[in-house]
Design a protein around this nucleic acid. Structure first.
Lengths: 174, 174
DNA sequence: GACTCATATTTCACCAGTGAAGTAAAAACT
DNA sequence: AGTTTTTACTTCACTGGTGAAATATGAGTC
């Protein structure tokens, strides 16, 4: 019996009961919101399970993947912070960890000596090429039974949600 | 200019480039996976923003909401762990924090003296009723522009994904 | 050209969450 | 009845992540 299914059933009942007490609650939206949160956590768990044997955590993996995906294999801490949604503090730690393992190199920029240049090392590329393929089956299985139309729809709806979240996020910071 | 939109654009390009190097990657699925993770994080941030003024974090809020949504307003640490996907260790801390604020009470069960009974306090109920409604607009705005059909489809697709994740999760633990 | 001001990163001190070991009560076995 | 096993929770030591201040360079101004 699936723990996750159980959790969801419980959430559904909970929201029903709360919305009976507080009827102005947007219960459909709240439900979707909770679903997104639960599934996000669960997917992260699923991936971390495949990362643990390599002693990488999610943010280190993501940082390494961004570098790997770059045409020139390099970036700066600031940029990596933006794309990983990590704080600068944590990026320092991540870079330290990856440098220590020889997966990336770190040096100062010549044009702007405040900047630090981070570059994926050959060992880093080899590492990614070795550890990535075993993750594919798990990722594929998550969407088992999804038709192409299902995947397109989900993609569309998630990007629409992203648009709204982008606006919300801007409205509270600048 | 939306940071989130920027992140997504960057992710799209990154996945394209990686899948050119490693063509057996399920790139559509990987994209959906990354989208789910990004949006999950972003929604969590959005909610925490509304929780911070009350000095609650997400897991404390969720714990309190579960208790609030229960017909009898009570549960046990073990059950709360299951439904919040928190470890027992952290639930001890959460309960300590909520007890200290007078939002819940904690006592030993009479039938089974190993168990601890956690119950929402009247102050806890009042607290929820006061702090919940201001969150509604943000939740509703996330799904602005979603037709009823959109919401139904998203709900269906997320639950389908949940089903797959549930199976994956079981396959690796028991 | 000295003097703010802004930008990029690091250091420090702290909060949140986890795994492993500890404690205590109940259930199962013999 | 007495021992072992299991269950429920807590404590402790640690990792991951954050906000505020420190450092160091570059940019703009008078």
């Amino acid at each position: 019996m699936a723990r996750l299914a159980n959790c969801i059933a419980m959430m559904d009942e909970g929201i029903d009961r709360v919305s009976r007490i507080i009827p102005q609650m947007p219960s459909g939206e709240a439900r979707l919101c909770r679903l997104m949160l639960m599934l996000g956590d669960h997917i992260e768990e699923e991936l971390e399970f495949k990362l643990k044997p390599h002693k990488l955590n999610h943010s280190e993996f993501l940082t390494l993947m961004i570098l790997y995906s770059r045409p020139d294999g390099s970036s700066t801490p600031g940029e990596l912070c933006e794309y990983t949604s990590q704080g600068a503090t944590n990026m320092t730690r991540i870079a330290n960890a990856l440098v220590k393992r020889g997966l990336i190199t770190r040096g100062v920029s010549e044009e702007d000596r405040r900047r630090v240049l981070i570059r994926i090392a050959p060992a880093g590329r080899r590492f990614v090429q070795k550890m990535l393929p075993p993750m594919f089956p798990r990722v594929a299985t998550m969407f088992a039974g999804f038709s192409d139309a299902d995947k397109r729809h989900l993609d569309r709806l998630l990007r629409k949600l992203a648009g709204n979240l982008g606006q919300l996020g801007e409205s509270r910071l600048p």
